[in-house]
Nucleic acid binder design. Structure first.
Lengths: 197, 197
DNA sequence: TAATTCCCTTGATGTAGGTTAAGTAGTGGA
DNA sequence: TCCACTACTTAACCTACATCAAGGGAATTA
């Protein structure tokens, strides 16, 4: 795809949060950096400080924690045109507990923390972008909390498929299992059950 | 307690988020409203739009959702000097899915959404307070997500007691059970088990 | 192409927590 | 004061999911 369509993606995405003037847009655009990752590479590792707020141009990522006993817990999957960032680390500039890994080859359009702060301070939209993003992901966590507290693993799986059918094809089942809070074996059995119905 | 100490509570609390000038502080203080609730009353009901961001001067509250089958799911407990608000509704000004109930007689110091927006727009701190609050509660949800995904009910109970021993005395066990994602009977068993050890 | 590894599945068995039912103690209202 | 109600507990039984062990197929590497 052409640089123009990448620009368009960014423009569209940011405009959902704040109405940027041509001037603001041009200033922001000049700081956008394209980054690519191979399958399996990390956009952000555990312990690293997240420098970028990015939007996925093409590809699939997952965010995950590591529990004390070394197990990986997937907590988010991100696709084309989604935001991607180890958000808490990005906000606080402290070492990240969450890692972000490319599950396919990935191209993202990134803006650096410093640039975003500077730009948006200048244009009075920084706090707003930050606030709206925080609110958005907070809401998502709240929904997830309800889902974890009230639904069975099978119901959560169906909900997930319903919300995001792409998952089925693109993401290894073991990651989906950990996202659902169950073991891969259990997910296997749930899928078998559903296929038989 | 005197009005002065109430002022002090507010000043201290807000100053943790933003450094307010004397002028900003005076302006904000003039819009603070004291509200009281009896035990069992609601600070915000399901379906209502949350108008206030409040700080508890004295008392204990719980926030809870209702699942489709009519069950209550407690998701937060708030004590003296904590923020309290049906936050998502406050942010979006849409009807709240979360209700907030006084578990004891409660006195809060509240600022109205409109006043906060106006004030802080004027003083350039609005978005900042909003952002920092959203980030704070987001982080809490993230921690809770991990806890729900990786710990057993018994471990979550111990973690909760550890973080907030007051809970033991002040909050009915059935609410704690629902917060932990288990039935009251199961919490009973867990408590018995722990007592025997 | 063979070898290795990873991913997914299946089966057998174990366990945390759910469900149902019953009983006790404390609390507020008439 | 008695009644009704709610909060909490206990016990018996049941279910969803975990754990352990094994095997097959696809993908990666030599």
């Amino acid at each position: 795809m052409s640089p123009t369509s990448k620009s368009n993606l960014l423009k569209t995405t940011f405009n959902k949060l704040v109405q940027l003037s041509e001037e603001e847009w041009a200033a922001m655009n000049s700081h956008i950096k394209e980054r690519t990752f191979k399958k399996g590479e990390y956009l952000c590792k555990h312990g690293q400080v997240e420098q970028y707020l990015s939007i996925i141009f093409k590809g699939t990522c997952r965010g995950f924690y590591s529990s004390k006993d070394g197990e990986e817990i997937s907590v988010a999957f991100m696709f084309d045109h989604d935001y991607v960032s180890a958000y808490y680390s990005f906000l606080t500039q402290r070492p990240s507990l969450m890692a972000i890994q490319a599950l396919t080859p990935v191209t993202v359009l990134s803006i650096h923390k410093t640039d975003l702060e500077e730009l948006c301070y200048q244009y009075k939209s920084a706090e707003r972008i930050g606030r709206l993003n925080a609110e958005r992901i907070y809401r998502r966590k709240e929904e997830r909390e309800i889902s974890l507290l009230t639904l069975s693993a099978k119901e959560r799986y169906l909900q997930l498929l319903n919300q995001n059918p792409k998952l089925l094809r693109q993401i290894p089942l073991k990651y989906i299992a950990s996202y659902l809070g169950i073991q891969p074996e259990s997910l296997s059995r749930i899928r078998k059950q559903l296929a038989e119905e």
